[in-house]
Amino acid sequence: MMYTEENKKEVILFGYGKFGRHMYHHLSQGGHHVKLATMVESNYEEASADRIKDIKRFNPKHNDSIRMLGINPAKHLLYCAMEHTSNNLFLVLSLRELYHDAMIVAISNSEENTRKLKYAGADTVIDIYEASAQHLVTNLTKPAVAEAISTIFFEKNNLKIAEILLESDTLLEGKHAAEIDFYGRGLILVAVIDREMGDELIYLSRGVDHKFDAGDTLVLAGKADDILSFKMELAGV
């Protein structure tokens, strides 16, 4: 998946165990700036051996130690990928207490831990085995679907899935989805989040001809160039 400059985020990644290591490398390759924070000395050494420079030690039990990391909730995404669930859970709890508005993503290894991590304050929990099992099952039962998902979401190519927040006074405002020729622009409108109706995703396949308003978020799939052109069109450039 290709990224334009605007969707590259600053990520603070906690943990450099087997989960954290993969996460660090993929986020870096995806163009995100990643700051690494580890609790374990051996992980710190391993990360240093992997020539990671932006790395700090911390203790999830001490708030001062977390504050020293210089977290800015408006700017940073917080990824909790520590090896042990108990550490991860405590970290999520500490982060949520310190930074109420931060976006916290946590890695889990079971449904039970997902529930606990969500309760502790994680906004998003990625279940490592759920995602992999789903991927495997789709591969076996619907290989073409697996190919499509892999191409659109995970591979490094010109295709991407993007979300666009509608500003006021754009050409979409007040218009219905059926009136806009996304297809002619090389795009597929996958879903919409209607500001007025909450955070729930609305899939247009449901049969509702959605009326766009400022504040809506559009989820689009298409070639990076087509998405950029559409964004420019919306901005009136």
């Binding site: 998946m1 990224y3 969707n7 590259k8 985020k9 990520v11 087997k18 989960f19 290591r21 993969h22 996460m23 490398h25 993929h26 986020l27 390759q29 995806g30 995100h32 995404l77 990824y79 990928a81 976006m103 993503v105 890695i107 998003t124 990625i126 490592i128 085995y129 759920e130 995602a131 992999s132 789903q134 991927h135 789709t138 998902i149 979401f153 995970f154 899935i161 993007a162 979300e163 996958v190 879903a191 989040i193 995703l201 978020t217 989820v219």
Partner: peptide
């Protein structure tokens, strides 16, 4: 599995809404 999770994490970092859409569609 760690890699698949990391890839999903990358999607989330870039496009959190798209990530939720993807997750709900493939699941």
């Amino acid at each position: 599995p760690e890699e698949i999770t990391a890839l999903m994490g990358v999607v989330h970092a870039g496009e959190p809404v798209a990530f939720e859409a993807l997750r709900s569609i493939i699941a």
